[in-house]
Amino acid sequence: MAAATIGVVGMSELLVHTPEPTLHTLGLTELFVGIILIPRVGNVAEHLVAAQMAVENQMGLSLEIAMGSSMQIALLVTPALVFASLALGRPMDLVFHPLEPVAMMMAGGIAAFIALDGETNGLEGAQLLAVYGMLGIAFA
């Protein structure tokens, strides 16, 4: 487990520092990469399982996987990183770009709307993708 953790840390460092030259070439901001691209790569296993459950028509489980992952980051990982940064002597605060709280509210609102009736369909999936696309354009 320790070796796997060390491997993940090393790969994360490569993932974060490797795209910098490409960012400048493509004209992408670090905010876009940090909010749109890197989370996709970091949670690819959860996304694959959620998609597999959706294909198997277990939409409730698929929705729980996707929403549980987001809640885990918001309620556990972010505060843990703030405290770890204090312990490491490089304090990190939770000062957000003005668009980030708006994005969180949009995502929370659409997720609550989707989960409210306990069912989902293709139109609701398209709505989720549209919100994601809008946020991607806003952060670009």
Rank of each mutant, 00 (worst) to 15 (best):
E46I: 02
N57K: 15
A45R: 02
M59G: 09
M71T: 07
E64T: 03
V55R: 08
G60W: 05
A66E: 04
V55D: 11
Q52S: 09
N57V: 15
M67Q: 12
A66G: 02
M71L: 12
G60S: 13
A51N: 09
S62P: 00
L48Y: 02
E64A: 12
A51G: 03
A66L: 14
V55F: 13
Q52A: 14
L63M: 13
V55H: 09
V49I: 12
M67V: 11
G60E: 04
V49S: 02
V49D: 03
I65G: 00
E56L: 12
M53K: 12
A45I: 15
L63S: 08
A45G: 02
Q72H: 13
N43M: 09
I65C: 00
V41I: 15
E64Y: 08
M53Q: 13
G68K: 02
S62M: 07
E46A: 07
V49K: 04
A54Q: 09
G60I: 14
S62N: 03
L61C: 05
M59I: 13
S70I: 05
S70K: 09
E64C: 05
I65P: 03
V49T: 06
V49M: 06
Q58H: 13
A54H: 05
Q52T: 06
Q52E: 11
Q52G: 01
H47S: 12
A51R: 10
E64L: 12
M71A: 12
L48F: 09
L48D: 01
S69D: 10
S69P: 00
G68Y: 01
A54Y: 08
A54R: 08
N57H: 15
Q72L: 14
E46V: 06
E46S: 07
V44D: 03
Q58Y: 03
N43G: 12
S69F: 06
A50Q: 07
A45W: 01
S62D: 04
G60Q: 15
M59K: 10
A54P: 08
E56M: 07
Q58T: 08
A51P: 02
V44T: 10
E56Q: 11
A51H: 10
A51L: 15
G68D: 01
M53C: 10
L61Y: 11
A51K: 11
N43Y: 11
Q52Y: 04
V49C: 00
N57M: 14
V49F: 06
S69C: 08
S62E: 05
G60D: 07
M53A: 13
Q58W: 02
M67D: 09
N57C: 11
Q52K: 06
S62K: 04
E56W: 08
M59S: 14
M59Y: 15
G42V: 01
A51C: 06
Q72F: 13
G68T: 06
G68M: 02
A66N: 04
M67P: 00
N57W: 12
Q72Y: 14
V49W: 02
V41P: 01
E64H: 06
M67K: 12
L48H: 06
L63Q: 07
M59Q: 14
S70F: 08
E46P: 00
G60P: 11
S69M: 10
V44M: 14
V41N: 01
Q58G: 05
A50W: 04
G42L: 09
A50H: 06
V44N: 04
G42S: 04
M71Q: 15
E56K: 05
A54G: 11
